[in-house]
Nucleic acid binder design. Structure first.
Lengths: 185, 185, 185, 185
DNA sequence: AATGAATGAGTATTCATTCAT
DNA sequence: TATGAATGAATACTCATTCAT
């Protein structure tokens, strides 16, 4: 008695493959991503992967695009209530600290995307769009140069927080962001 | 007609394999790193790779360790002449701008290392040591918290500069670093 | 967004599949013949191939049978006006020269059929019938042995003409056929 | 106890793969040629095929080249003792009759080569060289035009003899060749 | 009657690693 | 000491065919 009694109808499969691909990238890295692992994680026969996508690269692009879209939306939502620099400071501080605490998986995938984008122009479009979206979000309150600077600074602080075993304190993070934003802490 | 005319004496081979491994990682990513590519790039027989190292993972660790060591030393040298916050500002600004201009290859490899370290504890030691060295360098002039903050900020600005098609201007970079360092620009 | 806008009524589809199969064989060879290529070339959904035929082998047989039938009819028509050896010589000369010039595609398919027939008895019937028809056509004017000989000789000359980059001249071809037919040129 | 006790040294393997490839082509046709079948027929692990050759196409080219070379040499040897048209007639008659009787396998492979050459320029070189060699052999005794004609005629008669269930008689074959060669039978 | 989704067997090829030489 | 030949596991991908809809 087979484990999959010939599942003939599964309309969300394409979607699930994309999600599962991000899981596999998070766990094994792009270097450890294989069709087999994806198929196994999605509980789907191997041939299904190349049936739904034009090869693994195509699936990877779809997955990264979804990830970037999700991340951009999370970013937008996180800063939705911000109306001035003072509240921006609080939101940015939270973002860095929560970011590395609550979603290391997401950041790991994001860094894989960054790296892959250096070699794949199609992914470059994804990262560009994501960056653009982030800056737009920040520019609701900040002038362009400052938005860009803050974006870079948050990125660096988050990254270091994720890479370090000893994460920074809230005060440290808040203090440096306050100076970048020229807000008196 | 052998491709390798029996090069029997080649004492630097182990070293060269390590260097060449970094080249291959820079060009093809960790995902595209194979023993065969390394051997070909080093103009060395395939068996030589697993003869000199206990498998590919071992060679990768040696390569990343060398890379981190080199980068730490470059960092130390770059900030060697810094004696106060004002000169630190200039050095940091140069570092970010030159970094993304002059050595995208090195940064690419560094990001590969960061990601790989998330999964390989042995590499984690390498990144920790590197980070420690960087902070030590900065702490010659800055108090620990500020050193740490500057390190993260520089990382983020460099990374964004490398990922973006439109790099930041020197003024922008300098301005944000000045605020982080609390130096009047 | 379906690629095929539900073409529900298409009575000639079976026929078209047979024709298109010959096209694909001509272009990619029997080794490169796949259901997918046929479906794509016929602008028909993949399932349609195995819906109308009992598998690919069945379709291939139908296609080769049609090809042989068409070729036999062309042959018959070409020699329809021949009434004696002299006019046979002209017709045969034309056949060899036009054959390799005007329809290399058809000969290519024919050779694929010959080879496939060596392994598939069902196709053997097709080639036997075709050969029989050809001889019958020639025997309208020639005695059996000569008909058979001429058939073989024309085959060989056509084949060499198709395979060679430098095709033979009309005079050469005519001269050798004249001797075979014992007609004073 | 494995059937292959890790056979580590087998210097003729490359050669054997080429020979075995011709066997598989003879039995299954180019359409039925796979690396697995070759490996199994050569009693060799699968990876060995692509270790010794740059892909299956490369091996196929090597195999066809060897086949053509062998066939050309057989041809040369067969006609070595011929000194005039009369002895040429006998040799040619034997060639056609023995050819289809003694070596249908060889001719099958040859026809596969002809077809493949229509699509692969590299194989075209092989067939051109073979044809050139054949004509050279015949031109030792015959003028160029006649050599060419005889070559084509023998090809056609052999082919028909192989394809037909009822082979031609020696008298028939001899008679038509005599007329082509303008020798009184 | 017709098809798009699905599948598992099969494809060529690449891989890190082993080991007889 | 060093290597080229060798291997079997793994790779991505294609295939003819099935079948629920």
């Amino acid at each position: 008695m087979p484990e999959h009694p010939t599942r003939r109808f599964d309309p969300d499969r394409r979607d699930r493959l994309v999600d599962v691909t991000l899981d596999v990238i998070a766990e094994h890295g792009l270097a450890g991503l294989t069709s087999r692992r994806i198929a196994a994680a999605a509980d789907v026969p191997l041939g299904s992967v190349t049936y739904h996508f034009d090869g693994l690269a195509d699936l990877v692009r779809a997955a990264f695009a979804r990830h970037a879209g999700t991340m951009a939306e999370v970013f937008r939502a996180h800063f939705a209530g911000v109306s001035d620099r003072a509240s921006m400071l609080e939101a940015a501080t939270d973002f860095v600290l929560e970011g590395h605490r609550a979603s290391p998986r997401e950041w790991t995938v994001a860094y894989e995307l960054y790296l892959a984008a250096l070699r794949d122009p199609a992914l470059r479009e994804v990262t560009e769009a994501w960056m653009g979206s982030s800056r737009e979000t920040l520019q609701r309150v900040l002038e362009p140069d400052l938005a860009r600077a803050l974006d870079g600074v948050m990125e660096g602080l988050t990254m270091h927080a994720i890479l370090t075993t000893a994460p920074p304190s809230r005060e440290q993070t808040r203090a440096v962001l306050a100076r970048v934003l020229e807000v008196t802490p």
